[in-house]
Every structure is written in structure tokens, then in C-alpha cells.
């Protein structure tokens, strides 16, 4: 019943939530101001964290170095893979939105970006991370051992 030795080190779940909150605010601000470069910019921000780990994600790093030291220790930790998967899905959506903007289909671009903003906002405000749940559902079906 103990976790596999290869399971990654659990993380403070508040880091991804701050990341999701900043992403939501940025995308919604960009949408209101009709300033689409915010979409590829945050695709890169998400990509860095998802591909190379929290140390390389600007918002995750900001949380780890500036915000977390001012907070009490987390009451629980979580496996880093579900939020990483959710971020990867976000990168794909924001990447597709960027392509849509470049192709002149701004409505499609904003629709895709707003899907990401809505899901990230839901995760930031309630803790319900749809991408993480998809990862967990697939992982359990495939018998992947998660970090306990």
C-alpha cells in the first residue's frame, strides 16, 4: 500500500493554485483589453513549468521564493503529475489559440483562451482541477502508482 519509490516528490498544492489564479487574471485582462499577445506569453509561462518543473515556471518560482515563505506550511501535499498534466493541456489550448490569432481567427483564439481561463479560474477558486481529475481517472484505469 506504500507508494512506489519512483514516485515524484509531492508538492505544495498552493503553488499550482497561485499559478492558475495569475493565469486566469491575465487571460481575462487580455480578453477585456483585446490584447492577444497575453495568450502566447502565458502559453510559454505554463510550458516552462510543465516541461521543466516548478523551478522554471515564473509564477511557480515566484510563489516558492516570495509567497510560500510568508505562509504557514501546507497541511497536505499532492502528487505533482496531475497539475503538470493540467498545465500541459493548458499549453495545448493556448498554443492552438495563438495559431488561431495568427491566422486571423480572433474569435476562435479567444474562445480557446477563455476555456483555459474558466478552468484555471475554477481550479484557483474552488480547488476543482478538471485536468488533474482527467489525469487521475486515466492513471487509475492504467494502474499508475501515484505519489502517496
Amino acid at each position: 500500500m506504500l507508494c512506489a519509490m519512483t514516485a515524484p516528490r509531492p508538492i505544495d498544492p498552493r503553488g499550482p493554485r497561485v499559478n492558475q489564479g495569475v493565469l486566469t487574471v491575465a487571460l481575462l485582462a487580455g480578453f477585456v483589453l483585446d490584447w492577444w499577445p497575453v495568450v502566447p506569453a502565458f502559453a510559454v509561462v505554463l510550458f516552462l513549468g510543465a516541461a521543466f518543473g516548478p523551478r522554471y515556471g515564473p509564477v511557480l518560482r515566484l510563489y516558492a521564493e516570495v509567497i510560500r515563505p510568508r505562509l504557514p506550511p501546507p497541511t497536505e501535499l499532492e502528487d505533482p503529475r496531475p497539475p503538470r498534466f493540467a498545465a500541459t493541456v493548458g499549453v495545448l489550448f493556448l498554443g492552438a489559440a495563438t495559431v488561431a490569432f495568427l491566422a486571423g481567427a480572433a474569435a476562435v483564439g479567444w474562445a480557446l483562451a477563455l476555456v483555459v481561463a474558466a478552468l484555471a479560474g475554477l481550479a484557483a477558486t474552488t480547488g476543482i482541477c478538471v485536468g488533474c481529475e482527467i489525469y487521475l481517472f486515466v492513471a487509475r484505469r492504467r494502474g499508475v502508482e501515484l505519489a502517496a
Binding site: 500500500m1 506504500l2 507508494c3 509531492p10 497536505e76 501535499l77 499532492e78 502528487d79 496531475p82 487521475l136 487509475r140 502508482e145 501515484l146 505519489a147 502517496a148
Partner: peptide, 9 residues
């Protein structure tokens, strides 16, 4: 516990 629970073990 659950597979994701870091504190359970």
C-alpha cells in the same frame, strides 16, 4: 488513505 495522500503513510 488514497494513492495521492502524502501524509497517510
Amino acid at each position: 488513505s488514497t494513492p495521492l495522500c502524502a501524509t497517510c503513510g
